[in-house]
Amino acid sequence: MNRFVLRHGTQSLFALLCLLVLVFFLARLTGDPTDLYLPMDASLEQRAAFAESHGFNDPLVVQFGRYLAGLARFDFGDSLFQGRPAIDAVLAAFPVTLKLAGITLALALSLAILIGSLAAWRPRSVFDRIASMLTIASASAPDFWVAIVAILVFAVSLGWLPTSGMGTAAHWIMPVGVLMVRPLGLLTQIVRAAMIGALASPYVKTARAKGAGKSRIIFVHGLRNAMLTVVTVAGDQAATLINGAVVVETVFGWPGIGNLMIQAIQQRDFAVLQACILVTALAIFVMNLLIDIAYSRLDPRIRNA
C-alpha cells in the first residue's frame, strides 16, 4: 500500500510545484498593478515608490526567489487590495467553498448510489430508462443557466428562496442543488455501470441462490465491489466541483474561494491569487492522497502489491 500511495504522492507534489511556477509568471504577465492601484494623476515619484515598496522593480527571478523564501516561512505575502496578509483572505474564504463542495459531493454520492443501484437492478426497466435520460440531461446542463433559471423560478416568481448571500439554511438550497446537477448525473452513470458488472458476477449468483434479499445483494454483495470505480470517479469529480463552485459562488454572491480568485485576477492582486491557487491545489492534493489510501483499503490486490 505504502509504495503505491508514495509514488502517486510524489508525482502530484511535482505537479503542484510546476503549477506554482506557472501561475507566478503568468500572473505577472497580466499587467502592472501600479496602473490599477494609484490614481491616474499620480506622479512618477509616487509610482516609483509604490513599485519599490512592493518589490515590483526587481527582476522576475528575484521576485520569485523572494516568494519561495517567504513560502518556506509560511509567509504568503500581503494582499494589495485588502491590505492584510493574503493567507488571511484565503483562509476566510476557503471554509465556505469547502462546506459547499463537501455537502454537495456527499449528497450527490449518496443519491447516485441509490439511483444507480436501483437502475442497475433491472437494466432497461422503466426506472432505468428514466434515470438514464435524466443523467444524460444533467451532464448537458450549463450550471450557470440552471442557477439563473432556479433564481427565476424559486426567487423571482415564487419568492420561496433568497437570491443571494448566505446565512440561513434556505440560502444553501439553491447553490447546493445547482452544484449537484452535474456530478449527480455522472456519478449515477458510473454507479449503474459498475453495479451491472458486479451484479452479473458469480458471487452475486451464489448469493441469490442462497436466498439473500434484494437490498442485501445490492448493498452488501454488489456495492462493495462496485465502490472501487465509484471512489476514483468521485475523486476526479471533487476537483471538477471547484470549477462549478466558481460559477455558483459568482451567481449567488458567496464569499468563497472561487469568487476571491476571480476578484484577485481582476485586481492583479498577485499574492492573493497565488495563495488561492496554492491552497486549492494543496486541498486537491490531500484529497487525492486520501482517495489513494481509501482505494488501497478497498482493494486488497493494491494493498498487498
Binding site: S12, A15, V23, T240, I242, I265, L273, T280, I284, F285
Partner: peptide, 13 residues
C-alpha cells in the same frame, strides 16, 4: 500538471 488543477480556473488565469 494539466490535470492537477481545476481546468476552469486555469483557463480564467
Amino acid at each position: 500538471v494539466v490535470m492537477s488543477f481545476p481546468s476552469l480556473l486555469m483557463a480564467l488565469i
